[in-house]
């Protein structure tokens, strides 16, 4: 039985797809059979971030409507063993997702995979609700900024009340926070909410902190999950997050500024 993990945030543009790609690739590299499922019907982007946009023939909706089999629709990643992608449909609207259809596809995937990563669309409409509904675990992607934190809290409310686990009275969805686009410099200047501030407000476990990094844009330009850029700060932060997700304890890095010399400390900004 696979573990179903939803990557969600409420707010758009905070790094859900980047995170789905990175965490999925990280889990697969650790030897777990992993499939990434794009729930953003009509606005698919996971294929582009994963660099397989030219290999999409059939998509999630085709499988739901039994126009293609899962084997026909799953795209095997060329860089990482054990990693597959199920793209969203670009042409249909979000109502093409049905609860029964999603459940059937997830059940079928569960037989073959260890982890199913559901990349949620922004907002709290159908696609987002369905991405959350069947989850066992949730990664809440949040930027240290007021609207993102508020939306994340809203999503936590939905995870607690409108999921299959809640409906069946099962143990709740495990919720973990991933703080992205973090700038220690701006936190130190008092211009950005600190990781402690966000943890205090949302009151969930911290999976990781991903620093604001040029590497994220570079990786998406190239269609490579940033976790495969092993030398980059963001790539290493995602590697730590995956290790923690798998139960390892690792200290959080990239939370402090690099140490400056005396001159820098006196006059630096």
């Amino acid at each position: 039985m696979a573990k179903i993990v939803v990557v969600t945030s409420g707010k758009g543009g905070v790094g859900k797809t980047t995170t789905s790609a990175a965490i999925g690739a990280g889990l697969a590299k650790a030897g777990h059979r992993t499939v990434l499922v794009d729930f953003d019907v009509g606005l698919r982007n996971l294929d582009l971030i994963m660099g397989c946009e030219r290999r999409v023939v059939y998509d999630f909706i085709n499988v739901i409507h039994e126009e293609a089999s899962l084997n026909q629709a799953l795209i095997r990643d060329k860089r990482v063993d054990n990693l597959f992608i199920l793209a969203a449909s670009q042409t249909r609207d979000k109502d093409a997702l049905t609860e029964d259809g999603v459940e059937r596809v997830l059940t079928e995937l569960s037989r073959d995979f260890d982890y199913i990563i559901c990349d949620s669309p922004a907002g709290i409409e159908r696609g987002a609700l369905l991405a959350m509904y069947f989850a066992d675990e949730a990664i809440i992607v949040t930027n240290p900024e007021v609207s993102s934190v508020r939306d994340s809290d809203r999503v936590l409310g939905i995870l607690a009340s409108k999921t299959r686990r809640a409906a069946n009275g099962e143990p709740p969805v495990r919720e973990q926070l991933l703080l992205t686009r973090y700038s220690p410099l701006r936190v130190q200047k008092g211009e950005m909410l600190s990781v402690e501030d966000v943890k205090e407000i949302l009151a969930i476990d911290l999976l990781g902190v991903i620093p604001e990094s040029q590497a994220v844009l570079n990786a998406s330009n190239a269609g490579v999950p940033v976790i495969l850029e092993e030398e980059s700060d963001a790539g290493q932060a995602y590697q730590d997050a995956v290790a923690r997700f798998l139960g390892e304890e690792r200290p959080h890095r990239f939370l402090q500024l690099e140490k400056k010399g005396l001159f820098g400390r006196l006059f630096g900004g």
């Binding site: 008092g190 909410l193 820098g264 006059f267």
Partner: peptide, 21 residues
């Protein structure tokens, strides 16, 4: 830094954000 000491008049925006949130 030394210069920040003079710049930091009034409340930092991050603490305002935290209170509002």
């Amino acid at each position: 830094s030394f210069l920040d000491y003079f710049r930091s008049q009034g409340k930092r925006s991050a603490s305002v954000a935290k209170e509002r949130l």
